[in-house]
Design a protein around this nucleic acid. Structure first.
Lengths: 228, 228
DNA sequence: TCCCTGTCAAGAGCACTGCTCTCGGTTGTG
DNA sequence: CACAACCGAGAGCAGTGCTCTTGACAGGGA
């Protein structure tokens, strides 16, 4: 992969990866806002200032971790997309997203929790962030093509400004009815709202553990979209 | 209210409130994790150590702010519950919750965002946290009593462990069918997932501004519950 | 081969944080 | 009136992100 580089460049790439790994390890234990450059450098046996040769600031390190997290979640979700029965596929993707979030709660909080104070997400994070919603749309597209999507009768077609906003999604999934596209956003927010509530302790006392509730919600949301 | 107390106790209560107000002001500008006791004390013209006479730790201050935030949101939602037409009431509550969140984004993030590293929410926060979901249940109860709730035909009755967990909710709203109770949790997670996505920037590029989308989602979720 | 240039780790230092402890002064009460 | 409780000020500790300077080293051209 990086065979043709000089020794210096290879060492730099390796150390950059080591720093991210150590930072991820620290992230998992103390959380994002408590992530300390000095602690990372200590773990690697180097001095804190040396770390700035690789990441210009704490924010830049966080950006790298955010992109990696989006990509890891996207990859996990895509790996669950079997291409088989649409409903089964839908539920499998839901489960994969939840499993990844439960396995990496701090990384999940990093990307779907409250924004970090003073941190402005650069443009480079938006593409990885769209992987999961794009995957959901592609599943619906395939289901539609296979005749496994019945646009529910009670789904209102968007009008006015909402119809205009839906145009962006129409460009991504031209075969899907606008009413289904709006519902896709609704279920997308439901999915991550549900996972956030579970991880952040909001379901304690009602639906915790959330396995059965999550499974039921997955199915009901698939039906809500008209998947069959 | 606190007339019968000594001058010292009145001064203490007032100063406690002033500290919370200053902390809330700082919270609104720099966010929860960057909230600094020293900055709060500076704003009040006192020394940082003096603040520890009123709050034993930063966490204790945060707990007070969290409880106040839950209460403010609960009060805003309850104020929107007019008791009139169930669907209108439902939509008004949704709008009130969203408006409060948009007006107080940092306080919203404090209670519904990622948990603060190292902070363990004490038991005193759970009661205020239940105000909104309890309000939603009470609206559904009233609608049911008024014959304005049709349990949707495709809502599956919970079974197994899910049925057992639903029992807790049955105790709170005995007239509602279990299927509707599960759906209430689903739409509850949808509501806060949607608001979090809007506030945390996840809707940029698709449904931002989210006014029309939010309105459509409110209506569709009311219908999803069988409200009419 | 030599030497210059760019890269690197180290360390000191700045301004900030949460928190603890001690020291006096004030206030309320027996 | 005296004593105890309370309170604010200040110093101090260990930690943070980040900057700057210093000295060592490697790569590539002459």
């Amino acid at each position: 992969m990086n065979a043709g580089r000089t020794a210096r460049e290879r060492a730099r790439a390796e150390l950059t990866e080591e720093i991210k790994t150590a930072a991820r390890r620290q992230l998992a234990t103390v959380g994002a806002e408590a992530l300390s450059l000095r602690a990372v450098s200590r773990e690697l046996g180097m001095v804190s200032s040396a770390l700035y040769r690789y990441f210009a600031s704490r924010d830049e390190l966080l950006t790298a971790l955010i992109i990696d997290a989006y990509d890891a979640l996207g990859a996990a979700a895509e790996a669950a997309a079997t291409g088989g029965d649409p409903v089964d596929e839908w539920i499998a993707i839901y489960a994969a997203v939840r499993d990844w979030a439960r396995a990496n709660p701090q990384e999940y909080a990093l990307i779907y929790g409250s924004p970090i104070s003073g941190y402005k997400a650069p443009q480079t994070t938006v593409a990885p962030a769209t992987r999961v919603p794009l995957l959901l749309l592609s599943v619906l597209q395939r289901a539609q093509a296979a005749g496994r999507l019945d646009p529910p009768a009670d789904a209102p077609a968007p009008s006015g400004a909402l119809a205009q906003q839906t145009e962006v999604l129409v460009a991504l999934a031209p075969d899907l009815p606008p009413a289904v596209l709006v519902r896709t956003i609704i279920v997308w927010t439901q999915l991550f709202g549900m996972i956030s509530f579970e991880l952040f302790g909001q379901l304690v006392g009602s639906m915790d553990p959330a396995d059965e509730f999550f499974a039921s919600a997955s199915r009901q949301m698939a039906a809500f979209l008209g998947l069959r």
